[in-house]
Design a protein around this nucleic acid. Structure first.
Length: 687
DNA sequence: TAGGCTCAG
DNA sequence: TCTTCTGAGCCTA
């Protein structure tokens, strides 16, 4: 092993953390700490088509969507076929062009998933960029290899792939020497190892899927992506350290930079900035005047190749949508028909997702024939999670739900399009968003404890351990997507905790906002100080959820001014002709219970169904685990951890006693609220 | 928060 | 007459 290798190893292996951090930072410059690989599939859609039909490999292939060729293989490109070229034009250039329909993205999405799986074998830090590009932060993996010296010292001086700028042959420098010359901070070895790893990943993708791809290796995402394009078609390139600014300047137009699109480029041009070099040399004040401080600084930084944005591992999508362009639609019925088809496809698309959307966005593109311009508009509305059910592990719509959703969609459509006036709609789109996790099993209490985040479901088991924070309990408590949510009468009766997500109501958020956390903190503070002395035992352990807290939270939250939002619990599209939320608000403000909604599913009986206090009905004041309050589903109860069971029983005993001794009790722990506020109702057997 | 705009592949 | 379709993030009211 050469001494140079060892010496480098010691520097690099000092890592990004721990006691040696200070040492490292004095050696490896801050900007050069990370090793980022950007991987880009070559002509992705066309390559997938070639894999599905190998006979296409020797032919010019174009993938079409509507009237355009959206991508093509390299053979077709030799004929001058370009992205987004009109089919008519493309066929003129290449009459033998084989056109494959690429409007259904399923096959590309599937392939993208498989690519992703392979990449995850190398690092969990994979960020998707579209279907065919990925960023990988392999800093840790490289570090590990350096520490383990998991590399042949003889190859450690050799870069895999191309170097930008190329090392001149007659310089007599090895790759490593070239790196060392470009930057003496010690980052050279990491990047070289990065090129080896990039090659491994590319080889693996080709071996397993038959896909060819390009890769770029550098210290940040911006440079990794751009340098990867320096040598296309199944090649890879590493950027010499400290060459970022010059490399970017060599790209020419500012639009070459990721993050600068057409609009920004136009704005820059207005102040005489066309090239990356122009941008580098432009006074910051001038940029600030035109674009504002934030964007000016950002553009300035990226022009020099500085980019500290992290590789963010990609999770499930935040929205799933579909849109179709179409010949001008000017009839409501045509639009409805189109939406109906989109809805069917969209539901199919989220079938495997495992999450339930609680909002839908409707998009239209209006064409103005007088101005010959078109513009897009979108509006959204909420949908009930009870429209969905899990069937054979897939999400489907319950009976009647398509009509309900369609009614909502058309209502939103009519908010955007004045049907009394002539109109031309050239595109319609639907998109589901605000997803909630849903656990399988109709009786799973987890379904009623859905956290607002799309990340996880708050398991009932957490009720008994320290991991459930009060904010968890709070948000869980505010988002039970029960069947009652669809019923104005029962929702009104249980609006403390049975609220469905509402778009205008804060309780509907997929992510709780900091504002809400503060609100929670303030009312919890009040609760602990005045409303629930019984909670004192746990006040030192705010992370622990008590069952009593659940009830009290739900009760007291209603007293918060912001809870007015909870009035927009749901909307009944088929019956409402009022503004969004109006229907339900009206019902809530009325003292007359509304009629049972047809949307209600029978999984959870309404609280009002039991007119008697459930704990009063449980006449046995010393109930054992086998003597549960009436209607409690033993299956659900028994599935709980024993300490939770015990806590529930104690709570029931307490409230039972309280209600027995004071039928008019309105104390926080009293029984008055139990019928609708306690967890009890979530144990009630399905009937 | 809703909705528009911009950017990306 | 029309540059597809999909998704994310930022900005503003």
């Amino acid at each position: 092993m050469d001494e140079d290798f060892l010496a480098d190893d010691q520097v690099s292996a000092s890592g990004d953390s721990g006691a040696t951090d200070a040492h490292l930072s004095s050696v490896v410059s801050e900007d050069h700490r990370r090793v980022i690989i950007h991987i880009d599939m070559d002509y992705f859609y066309a390559q997938v088509e070639e894999i599905l039909d190998p006979s296409l490999r020797e032919k010019p292939v174009g993938v079409k969507q509507r009237f355009n060729v959206v991508t093509s293989n390299y053979i077709a490109r030799e004929y001058g076929i370009r992205k987004m070229m009109l089919i008519t034009e493309a066929v003129k250039l290449c009459p033998e062009l084989v056109l494959v329909n690429g409007e259904d993205l399923t096959k590309y999405k599937n392939m993208s998933c498989r690519i992703n799986e392979i990449m995850h074998k190398y690092t969990p830090n994979v960020e998707k960029l579209g279907l065919d590009e990925n960023y990988l932060d392999v800093t840790q993996e490289i570090q590990l290899r350096l520490e383990q010296r998991d590399c042949d010292p003889n190859t450690a001086n050799t870069v895999e792939g191309f170097i930008y700028p190329p090392v001149e042959k007659d310089s007599g420098l090895s790759d490593k020497e070239a790196f060392r010359k470009a930057c003496g901070c010690g980052c050279d070895r990491r990047l070289i190892f990065g090129t080896h790893l990039a090659k491994e990943i590319r080889d693996s993708i080709f071996r397993e899927l038959g896909l060819k791809c390009c890769a770029g290796v550098s210290h940040n995402k911006l440079l990794a992506k751009l340098v990867g394009s320096a040598n296309k078609q199944n090649k890879q390139t590493v950027l010499l350290p400290n060459c970022g600014a010059d490399f970017l300047a060599s790209l020419g137009s500012v639009q070459s930079l990721t993050g600068i699109g057409e609009k920004t480029a136009q704005i820059l041009e207005e102040i005489g900035i066309k090239t990356v070099r122009d941008l580098q040399e432009a006074p910051l004040e001038l940029l600030t005047k035109k674009l504002g401080q934030e964007q000016a600084s950002r553009l300035k930084e990226i022009s020099f190749g500085k980019d500290d944005t992290p590789v963010k591992p990609t999770g499930k999508p935040k929205s799933v949508g579909l849109e179709d362009s179409c010949p001008a639609i000017s009839l409501r019925a045509d639009a409805e028909d189109k939406f109906r088809h989109l809805l069917v496809r969209l539901v199919k698309n989220i079938a495997e997702d495992g999450r339930v959307p609680v909002a839908i966005k409707v998009t239209v593109r209006k064409y103005d024939s007088t101005k010959r311009t078109s513009h897009r508009e979108c509006k959204q509305d909420k949908i009930s999670p009870s429209f969905f059910r899990q069937k054979d592990g897939k999400l489907t719509l319950v009976d009647g739900a398509p009509e309900k959703i369609l009614a909502t969609v058309m209502k939103v459509f009519e908010r955007m399009v004045d049907l009394q006036q002539p109109y031309n709609i050239t595109l319609l789109g639907l998109s589901f968003f605000k997803f909630q996790e849903r656990k399988a099993g109709s009786k799973s209490i987890a379904n009623f404890l859905i956290k607002k985040s799309d990340i996880e479901v708050q398991s009932i088991t957490n009720l008994s351990n320290e991991s459930l924070t009060l904010s968890d309990s709070f948000s869980s408590n505010r988002s039970f997507p029960t069947a009652m949510d669809c019923d104005p009468s029962t929702s009104a009766a249980v609006s403390d905790s049975g609220s469905m997500a509402s778009l205008s109501g804060s309780e509907s958020d997929a992510e709780p906002s900091p504002k809400k956390c503060r609100r929670l903190a303030s009312f919890l503070a009040r609760k602990n100080s005045s409303l629930m002395p019984a909670a004192e035992d746990d006040s030192s352990s705010p992370s622990k959820l008590r069952v009593a807290d659940l009830r009290l939270n739900s009760k007291e939250y209603d007293q918060e001014p912001c809870s007015s939002n909870s009035n927009h619990l749901t909307d009944i599209p088929s019956t409402s002709t009022k503004s969004p939320g109006g229907f339900f608000r009206n019902h809530l403000s009325s003292s007359t219970p509304a009629k049972q909604s047809p949307l209600t599913t029978p999984s959870i009986p309404s609280a009002s169904a039991s007119s008697t206090h459930p704990l009063v009905m449980a006449s046995n004041s010393s109930c054992s685990s086998t003597e549960l309050p009436p209607n409690v589903d033993p299956e659900v109860f028994n599935a709980l951890p024993s300490d939770v069971q015990e806590e529930l029983l104690q709570n029931w005993r307490l409230t039972n006693t309280a209600s027995a001794t004071s039928s008019n009790s309105t104390t926080a722990s009293g029984g008055e609220s139990s019928s609708k506020n306690t967890l009890y109702r979530y144990f009630v057997k399905n009937t």
